[in-house]
Design a protein around this nucleic acid. Sequence first.
DNA 1: CCGCGAAGATTGCGGCAGCATTACGAGGAC
DNA 2: GTCCTCGTAATGCTGCCGCAATCTTCGCGG
Lengths: 223, 223
Amino acid sequence: MRLLLIEDERELADALSAALSKHGIVTDHTMHLADAFELTRQNTYDAILLDRRLPDGEGLSFIPMLRRSGADTPIIVLTARNEPLERVEGLDVGADDYLGKPFLVDELMARLRAVLRRPPSLTELQITVGRMVIDPLHLSVTVESAPLDLPRRELLVLAALAKRKDKTVLRSTLEAAVYNYEEEIQSNALDAHISRLRKRLTDAGAGVAVHNIRGVGYLLKEE
Amino acid sequence: MRLLLIEDERELADALSAALSKHGIVTDHTMHLADAFELTRQNTYDAILLDRRLPDGEGLSFIPMLRRSGADTPIIVLTARNEPLERVEGLDVGADDYLGKPFLVDELMARLRAVLRRPPSLTELQITVGRMVIDPLHLSVTVESAPLDLPRRELLVLAALAKRKDKTVLRSTLEAAVYNYEEEIQSNALDAHISRLRKRLTDAGAGVAVHNIRGVGYLLKEE
DNA sequence: CCGCGAAGATTGCGGCAGCATTACGAGGAC
DNA sequence: GTCCTCGTAATGCTGCCGCAATCTTCGCGG
């Protein structure tokens, strides 16, 4: 899962990114609305976390702009202004949820899950493939109800594949699911993850196969 | 718009119904979970307002029950228990939002609007031809829901044809779809791709045919 | 109806891009 | 310390794809 965080307090932003990465969430961060819009054009985010008070203007103004461009990415507004009437204001311009600072990361996670649960096709609560059950929201994997713990990056690869099981996932999509734009990649790191993931899956008897489509991407299916 | 209100405090329920009716919202009201489930079977609601503390049990238990029955009706949980951790709990079982009592009717309205705005269906960008479904965006092809993996160039040819199925696609258009300017072509490479693609499609029983229009181009149609 | 030329279809071959695998070492967690 | 993760790079291999040679089909004129 990949988020865009629009927030001008660097400390909060760093802390949030760190906390979210423990949940397997890749976060891109910017402090300016102008950059934010450009980023949404270049990437596909699962959700956007938006601060209201920003150096170059009121964060809420970003929402209609984004919606007008056709994007329906869920937006959660983060703010110190947490009066009921202000919440109304935020929700009415097109935000999907509103979270007053300070907040618990756990609550943010829960609201994220709630907001993302909407499109059922992309965010099935649990995905079953072969003898394996994958929960891409909580990032847990079980084989025959026995938990299987995977390294973080392999887990992200698996979750991205599972969300589109039986369909090809572009190589670039996988890269975006695992790395943010600051983490440059200049080797076959992704291939290595795939390889190690394959080994772990067969060792665990997961009953699935990670298939390669040369020049296109990968595909997860039962074997 | 029609809501189901599951709430045991009669006074609150009456007041809410009255307030909502001013917004043109029709409200069905019940105090018991058992009735609630039956009501959802008989009617279609745009959203459900659910109290947590109910005479016949914990309101939250209603959510997985409803979800399991296949309904994705938005649910807003109303409760006096408004601690962050409890909100997490509510959202995690499948609620779409969580509202602590007491609340302003205006805020409820705003949250209703937010929840209902979430898109019911993502734009289907899939093309069906014969027994085959093509997703030109994600470059994936399935035959009778079984994935069919094609080499990159053949995939590009197929996608270009599928986007204009039953219509002729100029040879030059196909070349543009498969090759960029740097990749000069000076042989019948495209013909070769067509040929190999045809073979793969018939082998897979895709139920489609690639016809040639001599001197003009090609055309994809069901066979 | 036949013959001819051009467009298309098919297939084998070889080069090489892309992928799989593995070892190694740096860095982090405990 | 020990164990695990993860980026890097070297190695070997697979099969895509451009090419070209050959065969087939199509359209047209006589």
